[in-house]
Each structure stands twice: as structure tokens, then as C-alpha cells.
């Protein structure tokens, strides 16, 4: 989903790979502890660190890409 700025100022991204029923259907990719390293965390673990608008956007895009509620698919 492109760059995401977390509430603590870290910049990472959210990768969508499956529906929300899969806890790892959305993964946050964040800078790791050492230079150049990254760590990935399931979205529920970083949910509180997202801007509310970003969270809405992530959940909407995930539903449009992988959900079965009938929303218009992306692009």
C-alpha cells in the first residue's frame, strides 16, 4: 500500500496478502533494529500505531482486494 507513517514517526509500509480473517492477511513492514534491517508484524499488532485514516484505508483496500462483501475491486 505504499509508505505509511506510524504515529511514533516510523515510516514503513503495509503489505496485503489475504483477507482479514487471516491474522497475517495484512503485514506491516517496519525498519528493524540495525541499519537496513526490516521487521514484519501482523497488522493487529501495530494497529494502535496507525493513523485512524490509514487504518480505514488499509481495511477498505484489504476488503476490496480479498473480501467477499461485494465491494468494487480495486482499479
Amino acid at each position: 500500500m505504499g509508505r505509511v507513517t506510524f504515529l511514533d514517526g516510523r515510516v514503513g509500509s503495509v503489505v496485503l496478502v489475504g483477507p482479514r480473517s487471516n491474522p497475517k492477511g495484512a503485514m506491516a513492514v517496519l525498519p528493524g533494529d540495525s541499519a537496513g534491517a526490516v521487521k514484519t508484524l501482523p497488522l493487529p499488532q501495530v494497529m494502535d500505531s496507525l493513523q485512524p485514516a490509514t487504518l480505514v484505508e488499509v481495511l477498505a483496500v484489504q476488503e476490496r482486494a480479498f473480501g467477499n462483501s461485494g465491494l468494487q475491486p480495486l482499479g
Partner: peptide, 16 residues
């Protein structure tokens, strides 16, 4: 807050 948003979104999807 972010604790409400997933619930709201799920309920909204169910209402589509």
C-alpha cells in the same frame, strides 16, 4: 479510536 474502526468497518461490510 483505532479500537472502534475494525468493528465499524466489519459492520459496514456486512450491511453492504
Amino acid at each position: 479510536s483505532n479500537s472502534h474502526i475494525p468493528r465499524i468497518m466489519d459492520a459496514f461490510f456486512a450491511e453492504l
